[in-house]
Design a protein around this nucleic acid. Structure first.
Lengths: 216, 216
DNA sequence: GTCTATAAGAGGATAGAC
DNA sequence: GTCTATCCTCTTATAGAC
């Protein structure tokens, strides 16, 4: 079993859970230590400080999400509609009932742009998400419109996760996931244009921006 | 001018701005005091403590939103489609380019359910928002479906505000507002079903929940 | 690798001078 | 109504014993 959890991983686990449910600033190193059976002094054996620990945690979220969720959009042996469904179901399983919602989303709102290293990782995460969705949508919608629909779908999912936190009712989020899958349901090109517009969409094409990533 | 700002209001103004951009826990009383030209000891002349200040601030957000934004959905002299457009435009003006996004949304994710008084106010705010949207939608969609569409629209707006924070690009949010207006664009009942599904929607009616408010 | 002890500072809150 | 001074707690971080 090469996947044996090291103590360092246990600290990251505890940190992720607490950051998600209590926020970054309101979680102390002592909290994290206690959650994995250590005293706060011991945490500094593994990490240079709270910020370094958080960055390691974010890096693991990014890696895990790529492997277990967003990667589902990449299997070339599976038709796009099924890849989209697999992706949406994975997202739904991951976030439904998850106390604290999406760490990346919560962190984006909590720290704003005060900690650039966090911003970069949050952007990377959402960029991965967008790329995954766009890759299965662009066959039907074209790159530019697929990118927009991907953003819209992520926005709806994030907002639904937020509302789920507020109301305790997962129905909003389930509808968001189902409507995302429905983007590839119909047969014709224009009819399934999911998030609102009917008709061929006289939206300004603008720059066909494929990525948000513009940081170093 | 009866709308002359009192000093107390100035403290609330500063607190709202800082809570929104820096988060609740990461904003100190000294920060708030400095932002309105006081020292931190003086803030306690107006408020019993940081938490009481925050609650007064949230109450003002709720009152202001009712009056200036959600209230636009209530004018009986205006047809529903126009009321929806006014509402969506007010939402767009209020949040577009607003650093820190939506305080209520950010607060919901930051504090989770740790501070019940905050939760109640956040729920109240989103309940107002939902009621406003549902009131203009129920003529066409019926109460139950109008409530769902209202939730979906709020989710999309909140998520778009979040993404706007991450990417700096307001396009996601503008699309969200436009698609909300489009919910009352078409003439027939089924064709304009905005947030995804095409067709008559075989969704389970479930409980026609009108409100999320279930706290005391 | 985990502990104790401690430094150094930030943050919430109070008391009292002016 | 604002300031200064102070108290107390929590938090980050380091040093060194075991």
């Amino acid at each position: 079993m090469p996947t044996r959890k090291t103590d360092r991983d246990a600290v990251i686990d505890a940190a992720l859970e607490l950051f998600r449910t209590q926020g970054y600033h309101h979680t102390s190193v002592a909290d994290i230590a206690a959650a994995c059976g250590l005293l706060k002094g011991s945490v500094y054996h593994y990490f240079a400080g709270k910020k370094a620990l958080a960055m390691a945690a974010l890096d693991r979220v990014i890696a895990d999400s790529r492997q277990k969720i967003f990667g589902l959009a990449n299997d070339p042996a599976v038709p796009p509609a099924v890849r989209l469904q697999n992706l949406a179901e994975a997202v739904e399983r991951f976030f439904a009932g998850r106390e604290g919602g999406c760490l990346m989303g919560s962190l984006a709102l909590e720290v704003g742009d005060a900690i650039p290293e966090f911003c970069d990782r949050v952007r990377l995460y959402f960029d991965d998400w967008k790329a995954a969705l766009a890759s299965v949508l662009e066959g039907r919608y074209g790159a530019a419109r697929a990118g927009e629909l991907a953003e819209d779908s992520i926005a709806r999912a994030q907002g639904a996760i937020l509302l789920m936190e507020v109301t305790g009712d997962p129905a909003v989020f389930r509808r968001a996931c189902r409507d995302t899958v429905a983007l590839l349901d119909g047969a014709t090109e224009t009819e399934a244009a999911g998030t609102g517009r009917s008709g061929p969409a006289k939206d300004t094409p603008g720059e066909p921006r494929e990525s948000w990533q513009h940081a170093s």
